[in-house]
Write a protein that binds this DNA or RNA. Structure first.
Lengths: 183, 183
DNA sequence: GATGGCAAGTTGACAATGACAACATCAGCA
DNA sequence: TGCTGATGTTGTCATTGTCAACTTGCCATC
């Protein structure tokens, strides 16, 4: 069987690149190494991705979908905790998604995946009737958990020995402005 | 005047690298380009920084100090807004500081600069007596503004046409748990 | 069943980069 | 005067992203 044509190279590359990213970090992720691991020549990836950034964008999009899955079905605090858990569980993927390496504008695929995930958040908040402005609350909630995740990842909360508790407490320390007057 | 010895190479490199970073982004920042701009050979930087990461760490430390300056003297909402303003005003520097490119642990200089800035935040909150747990509130506040900044930077809030107002509103949508009982 | 075209892979090349080693310059001090 | 160490320099290497040109082999069409 001639293996000249790989068959599922695109998927194999994403797999290899994902492995590299998660286990060794973004810096270790080169197109050539991914190609090596997929058992093809150093230029084969260009048949499936216009350039390195395109590969990264695909990995990030995967990440948004995974994150969306992790949030689905949860609400409130629980959703926030799931968000942070995802970030801590996939630090390098998370950083790729939000590290500003990729310009959202240049990768429509990214924008769509990210937008869909955000939508999950907004919907969850829209359900709670006693909140003044659900959209604003959703933005604030996302900001809170996102910032918390990022700062934990970067090691900015050394006092957080027991991460799960810390996360719960921080999220618990916040209230959202109630609807001014139930008119 | 023989210019064999530059005199202030370290500072000149930081200057050049800072320019590159802020104007063209992290990807465009190479040791060699910085050396070129400082008018020295491609290897001169190694006399002042062990490797590229060390240069980046210095740039990030500068950033923490600048951020500290921007926060100093402000409190509450105002401090939060200043935080976001700093991030939006120096996007690439901010991303370098928090993008996870640098491992805090590997650069003590970084840890110290970041810690000092965080201290400013905690102190500001400790002053407010009606808050249950100031340390927790500080962590939550930092998370909130940090996440907000990051998400804005990445373009995740396309609805935020009027950024300043949006920031004010999001920050305003949050309350911190009050002290349970003024014992 | 031959054939021609096109997607998918391959080899080869190039410039840029981070890093190492060996050499050059020069200020200050014994 | 002459040494020495910090600061710069030149030379070199492996790695990487990307472009160009060539190869393979499946599929449709005659």
């Amino acid at each position: 069987m001639s293996t000249y044509h790989h068959g599922g190279l695109r998927a194999a590359l994403l797999q290899a690149a994902g492995d590299l990213l998660e286990k060794q970090g973004l810096a270790a992720l080169s197109l050539r190494e991914a190609a090596r691991r997929a058992g093809v020549s150093h230029n084969a990836p260009y048949r499936h991705f216009p350039d390195r950034d395109a590969l990264l964008a695909s990995l990030a999009s995967e990440g948004y979908r995974q994150l969306g899955e992790a949030l689905k079905g949860r609400a409130g605090r629980e959703m926030g905790e799931a968000y942070v858990r995802f970030a801590l569980g996939h630090p390098n993927r998370f950083r790729l998604m939000f590290g500003g390496v990729l310009a959202m504008a240049a990768h429509p695929e990214l924008r769509e995946a990210a937008g869909a995930t955000y939508e999950t958040l907004v919907v969850a908040f829209r359900a709670q009737r006693d909140i003044a402005d659900p959209a604003l609350a959703a933005a604030a909630a996302w900001s809170l958990v996102h910032g918390l995740a990022q700062l934990l990842l970067d090691g900015h909360f050394p006092e957080a020995r027991a991460r799960d508790d810390f996360v719960r407490q921080v999220i618990g320390a916040v209230r959202f402005a109630a609807a001014p007057r139930p008119a």
